[in-house]
């Protein structure tokens, strides 16, 4: 096990940030912490990177205790905080050199590890980090976190504020790093990124709600979800919410997701109901369950 978290609780003054959280991350795994802003993801990262002390519970990284052996953890993990935390007034190259010397290594020594990422930003190596685009910044931050060849990588919301193409590229890089044996703990508010992890933990209001592989989480979802669409979308939401046996109604892309309370749900009745409400171009079909749907139901 690379990371072990046992019954961790943490509160700031009166506000509880994380409550009785336990999970384990296997060696070489990409483990995702999925949850909205303020769910407690960053607090967990800070506890594991020894930046914060938990009020209760134990945690260890690479077998080192986060309190007692904090120095050993600090020199063997890579950490990319949520906020872009490099020196904006230093160039790309100077940032990388600085972080290499900080960990007592050099760019050349671990160039193999960062090569694929670095060649994308190398044309801008004389540019100040503050002048880079969001995606470039994240790539540079990843390079800096990787330059000392850490065994565990902590990435706190690495793709927030990054364009979809850069996000996709970023995840491809993570997959390649995983193949090199690096354990990755990553957090994200984007549900679509959850399916790219080996296992995920759904977290909300400081509580861990579910831990499993993304496939199992969607497969084990016990309700049927319907994609519904009609010409008048706004009226549709209103009418579906007033349908007697409705369980849950929410927008999902171009469709409205509808879940019914009854096990024996009659599609025809709903169709007739919508027709009576003067809806046209009615379309109802079974939807593929996604992580987001599971999350909405928690």
């Amino acid at each position: 096990m690379s990371i072990i978290v046992q019954n961790i609780s943490k509160s700031y003054k009166t506000k509880k940030a994380v409550e009785n959280v336990s999970f384990e991350v296997k060696k070489g795994e990409i483990f995702g912490l999925i949850g909205p802003d303020g769910a407690g993801k960053t607090t967990l990262f800070r506890i594991l990177t020894t930046l914060l002390k938990a009020n209760e519970g134990n945690a260890s990284v690479l077998g080192f205790d986060v309190i007692k052996d904090y120095k050993s953890i600090r020199s063997s993990v890579g950490y990319m905080p949520g906020k872009f935390s490099l020196y904006q007034d230093l160039t790309v190259e100077e940032n990388l050199t600085f972080f290499a010397t900080l960990f007592g290594t050099s760019i050349e020594e671990n160039y193999d590890l960062i090569k694929e990422i670095y060649i994308q930003i190398e044309p801008f190596k004389k540019r100040r980090a503050g002048a880079l685009s969001g995606g470039m910044k994240q790539k540079l931050a990843l390079c800096c976190a990787l330059i000392h060849a850490p065994k565990v990588l902590f990435l706190d919301e690495p793709t927030t504020g990054v364009d979809p193409i850069s996000r996709k590229e970023f995840w491809e890089m993570l997959k390649r790093l995983q193949q090199k044996g690096i354990t990755i703990l990553v957090s994200t508010p984007y549900m679509d990124e959850a399916s790219l992890c080996d296992r995920i933990a759904l977290i909300q209001n400081g509580l861990l709600l579910k831990i499993d592989s993304p496939e199992n989480i969607t497969k084990n979802y016990d309700k049927v979800i319907y994609d519904v669409s009609t010409k008048n979308r706004h009226k549709l939401i209103h009418d579906l919410k007033n349908y007697p046996s409705q369980y849950s109604v929410y927008t999902f892309g171009e469709y409205i997701h509808y879940i019914d309370k009854q096990m024996k749900f009659n599609l025809e009745e709903l169709l007739q109901y919508l027709k009576d409400k003067n809806h046209t171009e009615i379309e109802i079909k079974t939807a593929i369950v996604t992580i987001e749907d599971v999350f909405m139901d928690l």
């Binding site: 930046l51 600090r74 993990v77 950490y79 935390s85 904006q88 972080f99 900080l102 960990f103 800096c144």
Partner: peptide
């Protein structure tokens, strides 16, 4: 303020 202190702390310095 910039958050770089976090990275400095999580390093052997």
């Amino acid at each position: 303020e910039l958050g770089t202190m976090e990275i400095l702390l999580v390093s052997p310095i």
